[in-house]
Design a protein around this nucleic acid. Sequence first.
RNA 1: GGUUCCGUAGCUCAGUUGGAUAGAGCAACAGCCUUCUAAGCUGUGGGUCCCGCGUUCGAGUCGCGGCGGAAUCACCA
Length: 607
Amino acid sequence: MLSLQAEICYKKMEIVLKGKIKEAVKILYNSEVTDDLIQIQETRKDFKGDFTLVVFPLLRFSKNTPENTGETIGNYLVDKFPAISGFNVIKGFLNLEISDTWWVEYFEKMAFEKSHLENCQVSNPETILVEYSSPNTNKPLHLGHIRNNLLGYSLYRILSACGHKVVKTNIVNDRGIHICKSMLAWQKFGNGETPQSSGMKGDHLVGKYYVLFEKEYRIQIEKLMIEGIDETEAKNSAPLMRETREMLLKWEAGDNEIFDFWKMMNSWVYAGFDETYKKLGVDFDKIYYESDTYKIGKEIVLSALKENILYRNDDGSIWADLSQDGLDQKLLLRSDGTAVYMTQDIGTAVNRFNEYKFDKNIYVVGNEQNYHFQVLKALLKRMGYKWADGLIHFSYGMVELPEGRMKSREGTIVDADDLMKEMQETAMEVSLELGKLSDFSEEEKEDIFRKIGLGALKYYILKVDPRKNMTFNPVESIDFNGNTGPFIQYTYARIKSVFRKAEQMGIHAEQGTLSEAKIGIKGIELIKLLRKFSETVSSAATGYSPAIIANYCYELSREYNQFYHDYSILGEDDAALRNFRLVLSRLTSEVIFTGMWLLGIEMPERM
RNA sequence: GGUUCCGUAGCUCAGUUGGAUAGAGCAACAGCCUUCUAAGCUGUGGGUCCCGCGUUCGAGUCGCGGCGGAAUCACCA
């Protein structure tokens, strides 16, 4: 049946409707309408219909009341357009009803397409670098890093799914005064302790000495202040700080002993990080080290100075004047010639462009650095790098606890490893209490607990709009009911369970008989939601927001659970209807799986 | 003080380019397991969308001005 309906099946209904309405206005009112005046949206659930035309903008052509205009256009459409089975007008809204046949036909095409991501493909794929994680090597990863890593990794999957070539990068901040602090404290108080000898994860071990440094340092400062020295001077002249600076100078001078020591401690940290990344399920294609890139930045700054883009102060320090861009003066090289943070970021950016010729370079970095990236971009453009337009600061909000911000002084830092472990343990407790997994081996159970615990954590973090600051409530995060990761996983596992049962009964989902089925209202609701998947992924990609997909997956799961509750699938006697429900269930599970995959969340087959 | 971001139910959050009676979850209360997984479903209560003005047929959404909060404006990274 090559009807009008078949012709439009694969296009977006909205676009086809727009054309028809344009035609209607031309014939009925003898007027040409521009596209932007034809506003079509999905009909709200509390009204009858599928698509709604807002008629207010068309009144200037009809010169009639909203009701009459809607009525007239509605009649025209029903008459000329078989897919529309009826309409109603409420106030200035024309609600159009699409025939069940159209929906089923549309659904059948959608259900059997090869990939649910086909419609998300961009026409002009780009090379995109995504930088995330960016840890310091003086302490372990914490909750803030988790948000960063999850966002970065998910962004990678979403952009890749849309056809872009995405490179995951990580820049490790492996040099500087803070590293020397851990090193010095270990030298003084460590007694040769290693990850092997202590049984501690390397990053935690090094972090322990960083904390120890800060503690001892503070004691020294207080002592000096009691002796009558003011705070700034005390901070400067405390013996520990002096020794740290000496160590940094030795490091920069390439002192072999210090360098080897630095390498050894960093290698402990990297081993620890690797473990955490693996557990979290993220990885990188290319890792940059600041100890390699800061020198490149230095050279660039010096040559820009020659070209008079920058200026030198009396004390020898080098600055940029960005007042024309509405920004301030920015230091790029200290008076002693050493590099600052901005210097190395310039080096890294140039280095990366030379290597990848990227169209976009996305920095997943917290919003506390908004100013930094504004300056970076302005500077690079000033230096004549046109590609600097492709630098994007993906600025995400801070993670706070119900009591406020995490503070290391108050010991309120939530450690990444601890958190993941706790989530998994909670998943275990809940699962064991429900007792649905008695026939599983210990290993299989562990895997399920891991998926659920991590799924809960990841979803909890990713469902929030990345730009906004979020509150991490430990009590709420281990709730597995409602708008949570496990709820979505549960929906998926339920569908899988139906299919296992179907297998036993010898029932298979088939193509071709769907049009005979009488689908219920919940079925159409589901189809409507399913067709929005690809546009959801597209807008998540253009808006850099995994949260859009997370909330979509939740909405879809909720809708499916209602469907599941209201109708029996395998118990249905009408074979065509049973088949429709099976296919619908399968499609739902596939879309949920794909959506959650884009978030980096694994799905258990049973739970 | 300058800049940027945020302000929606008791709490945590959704709310597409402005559209109809602003939605979920948690918490509270009341129901639903002899039937495909109750980590589910249904119902009840809960709102000055921070305030004011403006643009518009129409504003949670856009503009201006306040108020409140966060970040930042380092020879830290």
